[in-house]
Design a protein around this nucleic acid. Structure first.
Lengths: 187, 187
DNA sequence: TATGTTATCTAACATCTTGTTCGATTATAT
DNA sequence: ATATAATCGAACAAGATGTTAGATAACATA
């Protein structure tokens, strides 16, 4: 990729991130992004057709970065690093969220967090689904598996939302404990 | 309240609801609402300062209507009608959602459902919190009560979202069963 | 270094949206 | 019947959107 393209793309992402710290996605205009990124009007539209497309690109990059790190077995977060269960991934995820790689708080510490977390949930769903299939678990109670998968990923997302609203007075490890306490009894 | 005001307000609500069936909140313009409601420009702004304020008013009315019916002891939904536990309320809520009073599907069957459900969740939180205090329940495990409350209301909202995405192939009673199956083990 | 390619910039443009203001008109309550 | 209050419709400024065009600058490659 052309060095100029990369630079522009970075500038747009950075500007978007900066703006997200101050206001919600809905209230950010393309004009503001252009001004903050300090690029030409047509340049923005050469990269993204709409503001929404930009949001999706950001979500995609963020999620891929986080999930890649979380899945990386050589990663040294300590807990469960030798087991590739969804549980261990959950803990990794929380730690990554707290570490604030890529200014993720900009996207999370505002009204727009929902949008990213929805993206997150969809991806989590697939991950959990895969784990279930791999481990060939027996069906619990009369719960449809899709419901159970949705419940787990949903609970995770809701927990993160609570964490954010709570100004993060809890550690990722504490959160992971709470999460296990409400999920494991039903598995 | 003046009959005209009421009529205008209704027209705006109806137009908003109609538009929500076709497109998401973000893509609806005030202009479209005005045109659909067939009212004067200044009339709209005499009622609502912004589109967002309208959304909130709609959410408020919808939630109040639903919760009032659900809490009404003389209500004849059958299940748990003599017990005012949060559980019974959950079932009532699902039934009301399905009954589609006030064209609630317009607000739910689209990308905008999140907005209403967030409103819903906040209200549910208070309700559950109250129930916990009233029943003077002993603290479970080492779970903070706020976390537990958030988990319950969050799980409910996520379940409804799943229900909506699933095109409602499940009955409220089935859903309520699923819900109990994932919540009661941790109480 | 020379060259063709490609990204960016600037400015301009039509179109749409927003929110406000005005006086004229009409419905309402009593 | 009358005073009150809501609606209408038009007009307005300010700003956002998305597109176009030619000029300029940066790039990759040989």
């Amino acid at each position: 990729m052309d060095r100029r393209q990369k630079k522009t793309r970075e500038a747009i992402f950075q500007a978007f991130s900066t703006l997200l710290e101050k206001k919600s996605y809905n209230h950010i205009t393309v004009q503001e992004i252009i001004d903050t990124a300090n690029i030409g009007r047509s340049t923005f539209y050469a990269h993204f057709e709409t503001k929404y497309e930009l949001l999706n690109a950001v979500c995609k990059e963020l999620f891929e970065h986080i999930i890649d790190s979380a899945m990386d077995k050589t990663h040294t977060h300590g807990l469960y690093s030798n087991e590739e269960t969804p549980q261990s991934v959950f803990c990794h995820l929380l730690q990554h969220l707290q570490e604030n790689d890529n200014n993720i708080w900009g996207l999370l510490s505002c009204e727009s967090s929902e949008i990213f977390l929805r993206y997150f949930k969809d991806s989590l769903n697939e991950l959990i689904q895969t784990q279930f299939v791999n481990h060939n678990r027996k069906p619990n109670q009369d719960l449809p598996q899709e419901y159970l998968v949705n419940h787990i990923s949903g609970s995770f997302v809701e927990m993160v939302l609570w964490w954010l609203k709570d100004k993060k007075t809890h550690t990722p490890e504490e959160l992971y404990c709470y999460f296990r306490a409400v999920i494991e009894p039903i598995l």
